[in-house]
């Protein structure tokens, strides 16, 4: 199927109207990933003019427009201050600046990519997503949605009460997809841990969070390795992932709890 039309809606609602009734229409955020997918769409709905590239702090929360790029997460001082640097750190090694100049928060989150570092970090931070139709919901719930409706992700809302944060990932070459990624944060006194690229989509490690609440980083690592599911893929085996999960979670928590 060749792409027959290219449209640039001026708002999320206009974008929603374009995709809602049309199975062959696809949203373009950064477009980096879409182009790789088998081109199963006829109408490209590019969000670049939909006014979604804003970063603002409102009601004690950081609101990241869907079209905010990774590079912005790295360089924007507001983002850095609000997330304790976590949002920049989790993406700073992804490919190169060229790619990070185009790939977006919205494309990553909406794509529900299992490998996505950013999703792991946002999950640990306790972010919510705001959808043009579906409204606001916790990211955790959004990721768990088995049959998501066609919708436009408008923004991601991140709590700003981040006291400490830590990022750990394991890659082959530096710019590669993670074999496993771990984000740990202390948000307003609550320690939260998320683990992604297992290779399943990011999940909170609740057992680990409990152990962390008791200040036990080692126990948290063991809990995470025991409670999460791990699988094999090109990059590593389930067994290896489980073994290093403990180490990475422990190290991340040692940093957060210190």
């Amino acid at each position: 199927m060749a792409v027959k039309a290219y449209l640039r809606p001026k708002s999320p609602s206009e974008a929603l109207a374009l995709i809602e009734g049309d199975e062959r229409a696809a949203l373009i955020g950064g477009g980096a990933y879409l182009r790789l997918a088998s081109r199963g769409y006829e109408t490209a709905v590019d969000l670049c003019d939909a006014g979604l590239d804003r970063v603002r702090v409102e009601d004690g929360a950081l609101r990241l427009g869907a079209m905010v790029t990774y590079r912005r997460l790295e360089t924007d001082l507001v983002v850095r201050d609000c997330s304790g640097g976590l949002l920049g750190r989790c993406v700073e090694n992804i490919v190169g600046v060229q790619v990070r100049n185009i790939v977006t928060v919205g494309g990553t989150v909406a794509g529900r990519y299992a490998f996505a570092n950013l999703t792991t970090a946002l999950l640990a931070l306790g972010a919510d997503v705001v959808l043009a139709r579906g409204g606001r919901k916790p990211l955790e719930q959004f990721l768990a949605d088995k049959a998501p409706a066609r919708d436009v992700l408008v923004e991601v809302v991140v709590p700003t009460a981040v006291r400490r944060s830590a990022w750990r990932d394991l890659t082959r070459v530096r710019s590669d997809f993670a074999v496993l990624n771990v984000a740990a944060v202390d948000v307003g006194g609550e320690v939260r841990v998320a683990v992604g690229a297992r290779p399943g989509v990011a999940r909170l490690a609740r057992g680990a969070m409990q152990a962390a609440a008791a200040g036990d980083a080692r126990g948290a690592g063991e809990a995470a390795a025991a409670e999460l599911d791990f699988g094999d893929d090109l990059r590593a085996s389930a067994d290896y992932r489980r073994r290093v999960c403990g180490a990475l979670v422990t190290r991340a928590l040692e940093e957060v709890l210190a």
Binding site: G96, V173, R174, D176, F177, L234
Partner: peptide
């Protein structure tokens, strides 16, 4: 083949 692009087949970059 499972390694059929530069995302799955990794050659060293300058930071490696």
């Amino acid at each position: 083949l499972r390694t059929r692009d530069l995302m799955s087949y990794k050659i060293p970059g300058r930071e490696d």
